[in-house]
Design a protein around this nucleic acid. Structure first.
Length: 608
RNA sequence: GGGGACGUAGCUCAAUUGGUUAGAGUACCGGCCUGUCACGCCGGUGGUUGCGGGUUCGAGUCCCGUCGUCCUCGCCA
């Protein structure tokens, strides 16, 4: 028997069953709901584990003032409920606790959040009073799911011989990539630590150090604007292996995902996951994170366009661009209004227009009909598009990247609008979880504003061709066409994470830096230690990191990661509960040798 | 930085073309009720319509500014 104060609970509010009838128990929890019948009243007591009905007969328990969200201790006897009194909706519905005494442990004013879930409280209020919001059974379920999911992943990695190793939070600023969060050094005036955007360099160095198989549940920080699926700080399951290539990483993760889905969700995922080169994903789906739960794939109609009389199509192809389309089956009967709305979407992304054609062997209808007047032209377009009589074909003609981007977005919107995406809520149907690896991303991407190339993934990514198209030997290849050994894992249109085979050769690493415009002096200052580490016997290695906020939200059928983060920030990067960020005392700034230089106040702005 | 939506009672929302004292549901408080579990019935409290300015005889409603929240583009190696 546990000793302790008289109010200490003997059971939780989700625990008592018929087998406990007759026992004297003590429950602790929050007053969830009351139903007063005069002389007798019913109380639902709530904790993390559930609800238990407490029956209060004032002749036994005495008169006591209870209001919502009071924290109380109830001592009483477990009693069976009979017949119509049984609540079959609740696990504890076959019993109730007859109160003998009640002690109020804590009181509460009327809470600003409806904990019962009858109304959906504004997010702003939920975040300000997060400690109340988190009492809601749904949030407790979300956080419990997250905990179970991540722990299952941990076990899955340990079974495969991985070591969990922590890396520093106070580290060195990373050039390239996202904006860093900086932390001033008190000891070294004028110098700064940075919070890690990821443990990338550390995990590679762990491979050089011979740790061979590393993983970590790692907090990452990126000072960029937030989104529904992005926070300033987020959590990754980060990992790295030595003496491996792509397929070893894929196989490891497939097993981890299979184990985790089975343990945390009871779902038997089929493995291996399909693989698809980046170029194929872009060509078939228009995006690098294809949602494979529905069809509506893109079709290239460049050849047809080149031969056609339609000037818009011809000139797009002749200018080096593309003409591509989506065929929407006749059964979805896309209306003129639907098409106009889709055109608005397309133009919003940057398309000049949206051409459409209702397929027909005798020319069909719509703006393209007159270019399909000949049966040959109509038939050829239908077969290129994989379209049948009556299907609606939507076309974009533009430079390659925009054509893909617009059609990719239209495809996703059509998938949603036409109801092609099944609901994920609490499903155990493995077929609804469509994973795919997307491989061989481009190595570099051209940045128009900066007028230079950047790493598409990060500068430690191995090229598909170690000679870098001859650049290693002094040639000057077209950097934009080089392919990398970077890969993403995609689930139902979400990017779950990314990784790559790394560069383990100091010469190739230095060449990549040079191609990115980072000269020898800058390389030495920023990455000298890392290149030096590579020079001391670096094994071939590769790795991956998965966004845990995203995967845990997705597996709950949620599309906002705030629902699986205990204390998230708003879209403007504010913690509404504690009021961060905030001003600090001048003394604190002086101590870390920092002076605030504020932007000019906006004219007409209200005084603070 | 750009675009869009929103801000009214503790919570969720309504309020006609600018027009009487800003309403409803729910919650809460009080009363009644011994088997409810969305308890029921009766009564009641509760409002700086985010904030500031303007137009008007009159502003929740129109205009300007500002603050905040959400979504989104840019951004996120």
């Amino acid at each position: 028997m546990a000793s302790g104060p008289s109010w200490r609970r003997t059971h939780t509010c989700g625990e008592l069953r018929k087998a406990h009838v007759g026992q004297t128990v003590v429950l602790n929890g929050w007053v969830h709901a009351r139903r007063d019948h005069g002389g007798i009243y019913f109380l639902d007591l709530r904790d993390r584990y559930g609800l238990t009905q407490v029956v209060i007969d004032e002749r036994l328990a005495g008169s006591i003032k209870l209001a919502p969200e009071f924290v109380i201790s109830v001592r009483g006897v477990v009693s069976a409920r009979e017949g119509a009194q049984i609540n079959s909706e609740r696990p504890t519905g076959e019993i109730e606790v007859l109160a003998q005494s009640i002690e109020v442990l804590s009181t509460s004013p009327l809470p600003p959040i409806d904990i019962s879930g009858a109304t959906e409280t504004a997010l702003e209020t939920r975040l300000k009073y997060r400690y109340i919001d988190l009492r809601r059974p749904q949030m407790q379920r979300n956080l419990a799911h997250r905990s179970r999911f991540i722990n299952a992943m941990r076990r899955a990695f340990e079974r495969q011989g991985f070591l969990e190793i922590e890396t520093p939070i106070l580290t060195k600023a990373t050039p390239e990539g996202a904006r860093d969060f900086l932390v001033p050094s008190r000891v070294h005036p004028g110098e700064f630590y940075a919070l890690p955007q990821s443990p990338q360099i550390f995990k590679q160095i762990l491979m050089v150090a011979g740790l061979d198989r590393y993983f970590q549940v790692a907090r990452c920080f990126r000072d960029e604007d937030l989104r529904a699926d992005r926070q300033l700080e987020f959590t990754q399951l980060d990992m790295e292996l030595a003496f491996v290539e792509e397929e070893d990483v894929f196989a490891t993760w497939e097993q981890v995902m299979r184990d985790t889905f089975k343990e945390a969700l009871g779902i038997e995922l089929p493995i291996p996951f399909p693989r698809m080169r980046w170029e194929e994903a872009m060509e078939r789906f228009g995006v690098d994170k294809p949602d494979l739960r529905f069809g509506l794939e893109l079709h290239a109609v460049d050849a047809w366009a080149r031969a056609s009389e339609f000037q818009v199509f011809r000139s797009a192809v002749e200018a080096g661009g593309r003409v591509m389309g989506i065929a929407v089956p006749a059964q979805y009967s896309l209306s003129r209004k639907d098409i106009t709305e889709l055109e608005t979407v397309a133009k919003g992304i940057g398309a000049k227009g949206l051409a459409w054609w209702k397929a027909g062997a005798t020319g069909g209808s719509g703006p393209l009909a007159k270019f399909c007047a000949s049966p040959q032209a109509a038939q050829s377009l239908m077969s290129t598009m994989g379209a049948a009589e009556g299907d609606t074909c939507l076309f974009i003609a533009d430079r390659t990247s925009l054509t893909r981007k617009v059609l990719g977005e239209l495809r996703n919107q059509l998938g949603r609008r036409l109801g092609l995406i099944p609901k994920l809520s609490s499903t155990t149907d493995a077929a609804q979880w469509r994973f795919t690896w997307v491989t061989h991303f481009p190595l570099f991407e051209w940045d128009e504003d900066a007028q230079r190339f950047f790493s598409a993934h990060h500068p430690f990514t191995a090229p598909e061709d170690w000679s870098l198209g001859g650049a290693l030997d002094g040639a000057t290849p077209d950097l934009g066409s080089l392919s990398s050994r970077a890969y993403d894992l995609v689930l139902n249109g979400w990017e779950l994470g990314s990784g790559s085979v790394r560069i383990h050769r100091a010469d190739v690493q230095q060449k990549i830096f040079s191609l990115l415009g980072i000269g020898p002096e800058e390389q030495k200052r920023k990455f000298g230690f890392f290149v030096e580490a590579l020079s001391y016997g670096a094994p071939p290695h590769a790795g991956f990191a998965m966004g845990l906020d995203r995967i845990t939200a997705l597996t709950l059928g949620l599309d906002n990661i705030r629902e699986v983060i205990a204390f998230p920030k708003t879209a403007s990067a504010v913690d509404l509960m504690c009021g961060a960020p905030s001003l600090v005392d001048l003394e604190q700034l002086i101590e870390v040798h920092v002076r605030s230089v504020l932007p000019e106040p906006k004219p007409g702005a209200a005084p603070a």
